[in-house]
Computed example of a mutant assay.
Amino acid sequence: MIYTVTCNPSLDYIVSVDNFRLGMTNRTGSERILPGGKGLNVSMVLRNLGIESVALGFAAGFTGEEIIRRTEEEGLHTDFIFLKEGISRINLKLKSVDGTEINGRGPDVGKEEIRCLMEKLHYLTDGDILVLAGSIPCSVPEDLYERILERLEGRNVKTVVDAEGKLLLHILRYHPFLVKPNHHELGALFGVKPGSREEAIPYAEKLRELGALNVLVSMGGEGAVLAAADGGIYSASAPEGKLVNSVGAGDSMVAGFLAGWTEKRDYEYAFSMGLAAGSASAFSESLATREEVEALYGKIPCNRPYRPA
């Protein structure tokens, strides 16, 4: 079974405002409310691709109840820990003003709730996959991901981490099956600005040298790069299409990769499925569907692995 953890899920209030004026009363031209959070996005795209998962995390208040209601209404299996105080955050995403976002802080998570999460993860076993995605609330110890991976060591649970900065660097020694930084996050780790797939490759390989088994780098319109566990490098440009909504594209790439790997245990296929799923979400108002992913998969060039000298 695949499990995803979203420590700070949200209700995403996505609006467009024509002729936005700062300091004035503005009215929306369109609006949508969706459950949000990187782990939840991974679970939703997995479901769209026909793969079951269980979404774990923390929720609180009336917004937390709505997050759980909406995700279960979408057919997801959830096992959230409900907090006694606070409310789950609301994130405002203003589509028509250069992707401007205002993200909520989220509720405080106490030691007892963290212990409860650890108990749930205790039952993961041989063959399970755990996805840790996104930032953690400021009330949560910054070493939470490390503690989770340490607890799972030696149990043959494949771990996936989609995080940035110290959250990512500190878990590499536990040899996660997959990490997925974008090119900005990758560059920030090493003090560089990789502008092309070729420039990103050596830094993806450095993350492998530091412990990650597979490093998948999303690069927006440039496509993606995979430094695979067998030493091969895969690189492809993104299929052509109009960018509609970048929210969830990276999470969709993780889900597509896992779906491809689960199906065929083949790096080239998993990489192409990841790129197709990420692009499908970017080209759509919603997260990628199976039909959209399959349509784009056929447009991604076959990438034979090469090994740098």
Rank of each mutant, 00 (worst) to 15 (best):
M118F: 14
T262R: 15
T63H: 15
S139C: 04
P202M: 04
E153T: 13
T125P: 13
A228G: 11
L275F: 03
R208Q: 05
F283S: 05
V161L: 07
L243Y: 10
G75L: 09
G248H: 01
P176V: 06
S196R: 07
P137T: 05
H122W: 12
L178T: 09
D12V: 13
G110V: 04
Y267E: 04
L40R: 04
I114H: 07
T25D: 03
R265W: 14
E268K: 04
L56P: 09
T71P: 05
A288F: 00
N19M: 07
E205L: 15
V42L: 07
S43I: 11
S88A: 06
T78H: 06
N26D: 10
D108R: 13
K111A: 14
R290G: 01
R27P: 14
L94D: 05
K206Q: 15
K166M: 14
T159N: 02
F190I: 06
L226Q: 01
G195H: 05
F283T: 00
G256D: 01
G187V: 09
N214W: 11
N91A: 12
E291I: 03
E65S: 10
P107V: 05
A224F: 02
L169G: 05
T63S: 13
D251C: 04
K84E: 15
V225G: 01
A163L: 06
L76D: 01
A276G: 11
C7H: 01
A204T: 02
K93P: 08
G241M: 09
D18P: 12
A60D: 04
N91H: 12
R47A: 15
G248Y: 10
A227D: 05
P9Q: 08
I300S: 03
D128I: 11
N26F: 10
Y123Q: 12
G223W: 05
P176E: 00
L49F: 09
V179G: 00
P35F: 03
G61Y: 00
L178C: 11
Y174R: 13
G99W: 09
G127R: 02
N8E: 09
D162S: 11
L121E: 01
G223L: 03
E119S: 07
P194Q: 12
E268H: 03
S218N: 02
R155K: 08
V45M: 00
W261D: 05
D126A: 07
D98K: 15
G110F: 10
M24V: 10
N303L: 14
